[in-house]
């Protein structure tokens, strides 16, 4: 037997057409009777402390060793892909227009807003290089990096996977993502490169050679692929 959760946000029932609903109290509806939290888009949410991130990282390292980074990236990809479907549904319901005929910046801002309310940090998208087939995303206060602290290497595989999965679904083209600068390397924010596999492989190579995010940007903009 399966059960359909009735995800209905009372604030939304009162005022279904309101779009600026990311005030914290409106975005989440706590149902103390069921012990559930439902967000504005009728998605179920689970609250956690930073211990969840530690659990995921440590638990995986213990079980799969070096493969843990790739595993977390895969979880991120799955997340992004599922979220793209979920987003398309609520976006079209909320704004009554097709996702693909919407101004791209508005669309992306709208996608990220719930993550802001959910505590995943702010982001900044740089679409300047999209015609060359890649783009940069900055994340401020990454939940993963802030939890793990300064460990001297990039750690935000979950975010990288999320972006890869989401954008792959959005543009219907296989994309990958790599973190080229991280709070956990002592930087003030995290920077991700999104693009085709070739470029991501190149960036990964340069990164291993000790290149900085700035070096990688330069290489890519001059059209190099290793």
């Amino acid at each position: 037997m399966t059960i359909e959760l009735s995800h209905q946000n009372p604030a939304k029932l009162r005022n279904p057409k309101k779009h600026n609903h990311y005030g914290f109290q409106e975005f989440f509806q706590f149902n103390a009777e069921r012990g559930n939290i439902v967000d504005w888009n009728d998605g179920q949410n689970v609250l956690t402390t930073e211990d969840f991130i530690i659990g995921l990282v440590e638990g995986l390292e213990e079980e799969v060793g070096d493969a843990s980074a790739a595993t977390i990236y895969t979880i991120g990809c799955e997340w992004g892909q599922k979220d793209a479907f979920f987003f398309e549904k609520w976006f079209e319901k909320e704004f009554d227009r097709n996702m693909r005929q919407t101004n791209l910046m508005f669309l992306l801002e709208t996608w990220w807003w719930p993550f802001t309310a959910q505590g995943w940090g702010r982001w900044e998208v740089d679409l300047g290089d999209r015609k060359q087939g890649f783009m940069f995303i900055n994340v401020f206060d990454s939940a993963v990096a802030r939890t793990l602290g300064d460990v001297g290497k990039p750690v935000c595989y979950l975010y990288a996977g999320l972006f890869a999965g989401f954008f792959t679904e959005l543009v219907k083209k296989q994309l990958s993502c790599i973190e080229i600068q991280c709070y956990s390397m002592g930087e003030t924010y995290c920077k991700f490169l999104l693009g085709g596999q070739e470029r991501i492989d190149a960036a990964s190579f340069w990164l291993n050679e000790g290149a900085t995010a700035r070096d990688i940007e330069k290489h890519l903009r001059s059209g190099e692929l290793r």
């Binding site: 689970v46 979880i75 799955e78 997340w79």
Partner: peptide, 18 residues
């Protein structure tokens, strides 16, 4: 202390990804 809200898409992804 910092909190995170895990959306349902992430919870689902943990099962399928793993």
């Amino acid at each position: 202390d910092r909190l995170l809200a895990l959306p349902q898409t992430l919870v689902q992804a943990m099962y399928t990804g793993l």
